[in-house]
Design a protein around this nucleic acid. Structure first.
Lengths: 336, 336
DNA sequence: GCTCGATATCGAACCGTTTCGATATTCAAG
DNA sequence: CTTGAATATCGAAACGGTTCGATATCGAGC
């Protein structure tokens, strides 16, 4: 590894001049600049990112803290964020908390010790301790997907409430009244919002919710399968289902098929988020999809912005709520 | 941020003594040690990871280079690797090349400039240029899943050949002869091995392969859907299918259902790798699953080992080939 | 020929650690 | 009391850059 001193020696100048020349700062004569360039080239000199970072006080790394990278939603998010921050020569340190909320603070501390430039996080915790921690953290943080009450941080998400509202209204327009809601666990911020969206839409349509039909599963498919199996064998079964996640929708579909029902003939089905296997499953499930790339791009842009203008100009937190998009499949039918 | 000098000043000693005391090196009297500990505590001193890294020559970061983090296989891999390296206080820089082989060298260079301690990589490239690059790289590298011809590096994978051999032999034992193979694109190392595994098993069983039935799709599901649709409408259709990936198996299943065939009644189906939605799809597809956690743990252990003993003791490259496991579902039937 | 200002270049300090060689202190043995 | 070894502590030199203030060089204007 050639150092800046090697280059300086070969070019016959001071190290400071080399630094100036290679970074196009200060005033360096064309002749000297060329000589230095040549020397650097010849030695295969590459500045040590670490040494630069030490001087700067922080490195060109951005922490990305997620609860479950096995979820394709976060996989795609990671990929998009990466492609944006790469343009300004940043890389991502990815930490997966494996859905353990209590590891979040430890993970953030670790990132702080590494002096990352900034952190993008989809938090699980939502208690006052955590909020207090975030309020006094000395690194720029952008929250994504999930929010934390009582903090003033940039926040990017899609309109979770609107997502389920759109689905519910769509079903109502098709004539459905007995609509079943398969929700996530209420400790998830997004799960609560999606539930609200469902209730709002039902209220707006003047339909009373049958408490039996509003179940809290988890975001995985197996519980959803069981719930739907139970509800569909009920004498007064639902005519439509709103699932708050893609895996739950899939579980529901499987239960419907296994019971010998037809979707959409006997029951309509909708879900949130598309999935890698979305085009392969029949019927294609009508769903609202979050614009993952948009979320990722904004989060990435914002964190880069905060890193550049450390505590500078735009210090009031921003919020971006992206519009989910309704993608109509073949899983819903009109009833009379 | 308190520095080691602040601690030294408060404790009334030299910075070197602080370093010695906090790292339990050299000989520091108990009294002084206690005084230093107290001072550090009082100031909330945390050593700067960056400064330490600069001194050491490399940091406590490990690069993980993947082609597609949206694939749950790699998501689970990432998670397991992370949990192992976290134990020795390492974190992961994750770089997704978005399946662009030509970005791999650029990505590796970036990681080198960051002076990561080591790199775990599932490469796509497999040409001589890339091999030459890897041969002279000055950072420990462990390959995982995909190999590169002509390099001497640690390599961890599961027995891809055996995977399809197991599936094929299983089907043969059930009486199948007209077996269709849905393979991945041959530029993938694993795709080639899996194809070999199929051919070997067929040869061992003394069955001639119908070239019509050996198709190269890609690892995604849609192409598989089309191929299976075509083959199943053929007069002399296959009685069983071996799909070289999970998404292809799913695509095949969907095609089977859409054509009104029954699985496993009319055709048996097998695949490689389990999937998040595996327990929800019916019939559960018989498949061989790779022990992802095992692969990840070994790769992580090996890279940590290489980092500790830089070019030291164990310098000959190791290879670990993990046994895939056959998980029998309900997608295969015996025929006569 | 001298001064002034702009342009080029340099040396040294600094970022925050670790580590090596040197010095200061302690204690036991002679 | 002296000596020598063991134990404590220190100062300074790295690690590899960037940046600031100082100095050297140059041409133009008088």
């Amino acid at each position: 590894m050639a150092t800046i001193r090697d280059v300086a020696k070969l070019a016959g100048v001071a190290t400071s001049t080399v630094s100036l020349a290679l970074n196009d700062k200060g005033s360096v004569s064309a002749r000297t600049r060329a000589r230095i360039r040549a020397a650097a080239e010849q030695l295969g000199y590459e500045p040590s990112v670490m040494a630069q970072s030490l001087r700067r006080g922080h490195n060109k790394l951005i922490g990305l803290v997620l609860g479950d990278i096995g979820n394709p939603f976060f996989g795609r998010l990671l990929r998009s964020v990466d492609s944006v921050v790469a343009e300004s020569d940043h890389m991502l340190i990815v930490a997966d908390t494996a859905s353990h909320a209590d590891r979040e603070i430890k993970t953030l501390d670790q990132l702080r010790r590494h002096r990352v430039g900034g952190i993008i996080m989809a938090p699980l915790s939502n208690d006052e301790d955590f909020a207090a921690y975030l309020r006094k953290i000395d690194v720029p943080v952008v929250l994504i997907d999930q929010y934390v009450d009582g903090v003033k941080l940039d926040y990017v998400c899609s309109d979770n409430e609107l997502a389920t509202t759109m689905l519910t209204e769509y079903l109502v327009r098709l004539g459905h009244r007995r609509i079943c809601y398969l929700g996530g666990q209420p400790h998830w911020w997004t799960a609560r919002l999606r539930l609200t969206g469902f209730r709002t839409a039902m209220a707006m349509s003047g339909i009373d919710i049958d408490p039996q039909l509003e179940v809290a599963a988890d975001f995985s498919g197996e519980r959803a399968y069981d719930h739907v199996t139970r509800l569909m064998t009920h004498p007064n079964r639902p005519t439509a289902i709103v699932a708050a996640s893609n895996l739950m929708a899939l579980g529901a579909l499987q239960a419907i098929n296994d019971l010998g029902f037809d979707c959409p003939g006997d029951v309509s089905l909708t879900g949130v988020d598309d999935v890698p296997w979305g085009n392969v499953i029949k019927p294609r499930i009508t769903s609202v999809v979050q614009p993952i790339e948009e979320l990722a791009e904004i989060a990435a842009t914002w964190i880069l912005d905060r890193i550049e203008t450390r505590g500078g100009a735009t210090n009031s937190p921003r919020t971006h709520i992206a519009m989910p998009r309704l993608v109509v499949g073949e899983s819903c039918a009109r009833i009379s």
